[in-house]
Design a protein around this nucleic acid. Structure first.
Lengths: 109, 109
DNA sequence: TTGTTATATCGCAATATTACGATTAATTGA
DNA sequence: TCAATTAATCGTAATATTGCGATATAACAA
């Protein structure tokens, strides 16, 4: 049905999935990378850098902002975006916990 | 249009996004967690453990298998699934590289 | 062979996502 | 004030995802 049954999963499972889902688009990966390189950027930069239309970039920025990975500051007619350090470290931690376990060697297959 | 313009992004960006997208569903997170706990499982286990129908679980298993995170071995009428260690470590590395950078403090906002 | 069990696949309905043109809103500069 | 600039929002089309009932497939057990 296109709708995820979030209610049958734990908060932790839903949280990890939500974060991963946002990172699950190359445009948003590219935006995060660009933000790290430049340490700040405006929507217009990204429209030039990435080959997507302005409304599309704006939409992706909103999704990144919704999960808290980036924040934006209005500067006149432009909006300055940057990584939210606190959230970034939180996500770093979340992913660490999930991925930093080593799979057993004695796997069945 | 619902279709991602993968061709305008780098291979690395697309790869990270593809992996993240697969992890971007709580059922698949739950499956991976269960696999780590039990070190092996069959589809039926998951149908009982998670509250989703068998065809739905099967579909999620296929997606995890498609990106290589898990593999399945046929054992009679059952299929034994487990984490693919090599791929897991590869993904671990990929995510490390992306997330293990610390955001600058002198952010604009 | 026949029934049982376990999983995959098909087909569908409901919803979500992606992308963008057109428009709006807000600020700056002349 | 008026035009220009920048970004958000609206509306929409195309496609993808999620979930499941029904069915198919495959292996085993009797």
């Amino acid at each position: 049905m296109g709708i995820t049954k979030s209610e049958i999963f734990t908060d932790a499972q839903n949280e990890l999935a939500t974060i991963a889902k946002v990172i699950g688009h190359p445009a948003r990966v590219a935006i995060l990378q660009y933000l790290f390189e430049k340490n700040s950027c405006v929507c217009g930069d990204l429209v030039n850098e990435i080959g997507l239309a302005q409304p599309t970039i704006s939409q992706h920025l909103r999704e990144l902002k919704n999960v808290g990975l980036i924040k934006g500051d209005i500067e006149g007619t432009r909006v300055c975006y940057c990584i939210d350090s606190d959230k970034w470290l939180e996500v770093q931690n979340l992913l660490m916990h999930f991925f930093n376990r080593n799979p057993a060697d004695n796997s069945c297959c």
